[in-house]
Computed example of a mutant assay.
Amino acid sequence: MNHSGQLVLIVSGNGSGKSTLAKIITGLYIPESGNIRLEWYRQHFSVIFLFDHFLELETNSLDLQAKEYLEKFHLNTKVQVKNGSLSTTALSQGQRKRLALLTVFLEDRPIYLFDEWASDQDPFFREIFYKQLLLNLKQRGKTIIVISHDDRYFHLADRVIKLDYGKVEYDNAANYSQ
């Protein structure tokens, strides 16, 4: 079954294992039981976890595309790109996370995983993230997995996966209509 072009939300309370599940899915953690049946899956993920650093761009040919994303991410007045390097990363936490978002958009992989990415964003950009950027990825046929507490956006998902004390439950995103 092909699930490309779907937006999947993983939701639950704090400490229930959402981030651990994300790290198992992406191959960063080895599961203690069970198995993952795809050998090639790691190279298909672009992942943004909660973190405090930025990965530099590796190629100069992406400058023009990076500049376009900086505009979309409302960072073009704070950061410039030249020869594959950013002029600064001395920004707020939310703005640095947008720079990380720039990196994964430039990687253009088939699967995206965002671990509480929008938690440091102001309400204006949070709306852009959920209603424009994620839906754009979906339209481009990307699979998007979002770990989130933002229940006001659950209705945008194709599937909602709830973790409850180590058990996985599936929910219909339509149950979260606005």
Rank of each mutant, 00 (worst) to 15 (best):
I145Y: 15
Y176E: 00
S87H: 11
R159P: 04
S148Y: 09
V104C: 04
L28P: 04
I161S: 09
G5N: 15
T59K: 01
Y69H: 10
G27C: 15
Y153R: 02
S33F: 14
I128T: 10
E127G: 11
L62F: 03
S87F: 13
L50V: 03
R96V: 00
R152A: 12
A22I: 10
H74L: 15
L70M: 07
N60M: 13
E107T: 04
K72Q: 03
I48P: 15
S46V: 00
L38Y: 15
Q95H: 05
L7Y: 14
F114M: 00
L21C: 11
Q132D: 05
D120Y: 11
L21A: 10
K72L: 02
H155N: 05
D122M: 14
D150T: 08
T143D: 08
N175R: 03
G13F: 03
Q6C: 08
S46D: 00
N60D: 11
P123L: 15
L21W: 12
L62H: 02
N76H: 10
R98T: 02
G94Q: 12
I48V: 14
A100T: 02
Y69D: 05
S148G: 06
R96E: 05
G141D: 04
D63A: 04
S4V: 07
S119G: 10
L55Q: 03
L86D: 00
A100F: 00
G141M: 09
Y112C: 07
L75F: 07
E58I: 06
I30D: 14
G5E: 15
D115I: 07
T89L: 06
A90L: 14
P123A: 15
W117H: 04
I128M: 06
R98F: 02
T88M: 14
D171W: 07
L113D: 04
L134T: 08
H149I: 05
S85K: 14
K138Y: 15
K67C: 11
K72Y: 06
T88Y: 12
D171K: 03
Q43V: 08
